[in-house]
Amino acid sequence: MNVLFDNRQDAFDVSENLKEKIVECIETALKVEKIEINNIEVSISFVTNEEIKNINLEFRNIDKETDVLSFPMDFEFSEEGMPYILGDIIISTEKSIEQAKMFGHSIDREILYLVCHSVFHLLGYDHIEESDKLVMRNKEKETMKLMEVFKNEEEF
């Protein structure tokens, strides 16, 4: 598992402990999905509200900030020894701080949930239809439970 971190914001200090928990979160989500590819690569970028708003406008034609964006890597090309690139996750730390306060839990917990949510998007899940939303939410809940990270927790 190779997780590439890119920090392009200064609203929140992304600790080494949080990075380790993010890697664990991705690995746990893949186990929930019964994916056993060892050479997986995911990139995670921490950005400002302004940057995520611009990305949201460019790629989704939605002119507002959001908490997280997921960009699956959809290509068939693979060469032996190359990592399987799952995709990119872009997180607004400002939105994460706001939502953590709203839900009454830590910012780390909020970011872990957003990573979990995004991994399932990278794996092809969506929540547009209610039935799909239920499946995706159950996978998210199972992942967070296996990690022992729960709602309304101030620390983990």
Rank of each mutant, 00 (worst) to 15 (best):
E98W: 07
L69K: 09
S70T: 11
K95N: 07
T66D: 00
T93C: 03
S78D: 10
D74T: 03
E76D: 15
L112E: 10
P72N: 06
L112F: 03
E79Q: 12
F77P: 00
G87L: 10
K95V: 05
G81P: 11
T66F: 02
P83N: 09
H105I: 00
I89D: 13
E79F: 08
V68K: 02
E76V: 13
D88A: 12
S92L: 03
I89Y: 14
A100S: 15
E94S: 13
F103T: 07
I91L: 05
I91V: 13
F75L: 10
T66M: 00
D108T: 00
G81A: 07
E76F: 07
M73T: 06
I107S: 03
E79D: 03
M82C: 10
R109S: 14
G87W: 05
E80V: 14
A100N: 08
S78G: 06
G81T: 03
I97N: 09
R109Y: 09
E94D: 15
E80F: 06
K101A: 09
I85K: 02
K101T: 01
R109K: 12
H105S: 13
E94P: 12
A100K: 00
L112Q: 10
T66L: 05
V68Q: 13
E76Y: 07
K95P: 02
S70F: 01
K95W: 08
G87V: 12
A100Y: 02
R109C: 12
H105D: 08
F75C: 08
L86N: 04
A100R: 00
L69P: 01
E79R: 11
